[in-house]
């Protein structure tokens, strides 16, 4: 290889690598600048904090939803963060709103959050949408057999939100969460949160898949419609 070409390629390599490193470093710095780590844990070794843990964000969230949420945050936990000292009294110390980021910041932090994973090499889980009849049958499991409705908002048959507020609302779960994460959470939530307020279940494989499908069927209508 000719010397000028070599120099050009080496230079290009360092420029590219340098640029990548700068991009990767920008988000954690931004996380600190925005003080996200005041309320959220970014490592399971951190001390417990009141807001949801984010060290498995890449397993849990859909990228598009996360970026939109950071730009226009909404309320998912209607009773406040479950570890907030005022949570059980219905008077959480944190009342929001969650800080909103500009587009560039939201994209950078989303990229960083999506890189945070605890599940390695998880095979994509392709679950078909439930038929209308199947959805009604799983709804009975969700509300009657497993009592999920006591703590989670979901849609009733008239597509109105209904249910308890101590757990996160599932109204837009199908756009917010990844199918694989919902499946793993229902299978064993302790792999993400060692002690949560949700009961553990021993679902058989078929029920586990149906419950995952049902939760993922909850999608808000797009705002522009």
């Amino acid at each position: 290889m000719e010397t000028p070409k070599k120099i050009f390629l080496i230079g290009l390599f360092f420029l590219t690598a340098g640029g990548w490193c700068i991009g990767a470093e920008a988000s954690p710095a931004l996380v600190q600048e925005k003080q996200c780590d005041t309320c959220h844990r970014f490592s399971k070794n951190d001390a417990i904090k009141s807001a949801p843990d984010l060290f498995f964000s890449g397993d849990k969230f859909q990228k598009e939803w996360l970026e939109n949420f950071l730009k226009r945050p909404g309320t998912i936990r209607l009773a406040g963060p479950t570890r907030d000292p005022g949570f059980l009294k219905g008077k959480p110390q944190y009342t929001g709103p969650h800080p909103a980021l500009n587009s560039k910041e939201a994209r950078q932090i989303t990229d960083h959050l999506m890189s945070l994973k605890t599940l390695k090499d998880l095979a994509p889980l392709e679950l078909p949408e439930l038929s209308k009849g199947a959805r009604v049958r799983v709804k009975i499991l969700f509300e009657r057999d497993y009592s999920c409705i006591a703590c989670h908002q979901s849609y009733n048959l008239a597509r109105q939100p209904r249910g308890g507020i101590s757990g996160p609302s599932l109204i837009d779960a199908g756009r917010r969460l990844r199918t694989e994460w919902v499946y793993q959470w229902l299978k064993n939530p302790k792999q993400f949160v060692p002690q949560g307020r949700m009961p553990l279940y021993a679902f058989d494989e078929e029920t586990l898949r149906k419950m995952t499908q049902y939760i993922m069927s909850h999608k808000k209508e797009p705002e522009n419609k």
Partner: peptide, 10 residues
């Protein structure tokens, strides 16, 4: 009432 869940696995 079915709102009360089972705690046998918890």
């Amino acid at each position: 009432a079915p709102c009360m869940p089972s705690w046998q696995h918890t």
